[in-house]
């Protein structure tokens, strides 16, 4: 499969991982099922596809779940780059995401907990105490409107009539 076609395949699966290999094959031009299945396997084996998940609107499921975005400033030292600090952070299971950013702070950490206190304790006891971490700023998420390109609010239903010419 050409790299261009692989990119289309990845976009299709990123948008809807539940598409069957049969459907994906039909949607791509001039590909056979075997090639598509093999390509997906290779993408999984080489770690380009790291997993499949559902986009869940947790706001509608449980009330005792809280997500915080934490800005972390790091003082890099000889022998300890951002990567090493990031690794120390992402190993905590409550950490959902860690990204290195350009701009006024260095690492953005997403943490999920059951209560504000739980997240606060994580920040003060676990995160802030890591060497080379200069400061942290914690933002609690109040409401999620859109995530991964998907709007979580209702009201975007199909407005069309059932049959039109």
């Amino acid at each position: 499969m050409t790299p261009e076609r692989q990119k289309v395949l990845l976009h299709l699966l990123e948008h809807n991982a539940k598409l069957s290999p049969q459907t994906v094959t039909a949607m791509l031009e001039d590909e056979d099922l075997e090639t598509v299945e093999r390509t997906i396997r290779e993408l999984e084996d080489t770690g380009i596809i790291r997993g499949y998940s559902a986009i869940v609107n947790w706001d509608r499921v449980e009330s005792d779940r809280i997500t915080a975005i934490i800005e972390v400033k790091v003082t890099p030292q000889r022998g300890v780059g951002f990567d090493e600090v990031a690794r120390r952070i992402y190993r905590f299971p409550e950490v959902q995401a860690v990204q290195l950013l350009s701009g006024s702070y260095d690492l953005q950490v997403v943490v999920v907990g059951r209560r504000i206190q739980e997240v606060a304790r994580f920040v003060s006891e676990r995160l802030a105490t890591i060497d080379f971490i200069q400061s942290t700023t914690t933002h609690f998420i109040l409401k999620t409107y859109k995530v991964d390109g998907v709007v979580l609010e209702d009201g975007d239903d199909d407005q069309r009539l059932v049959i039109t010419p």
Binding site: D158, R160, L161, T164
Partner: peptide, 8 residues
């Protein structure tokens, strides 16, 4: 419906 004559 596959009867709709307009974009979704």
């Amino acid at each position: 419906s596959l009867g709709v004559g307009e974009p979704d």
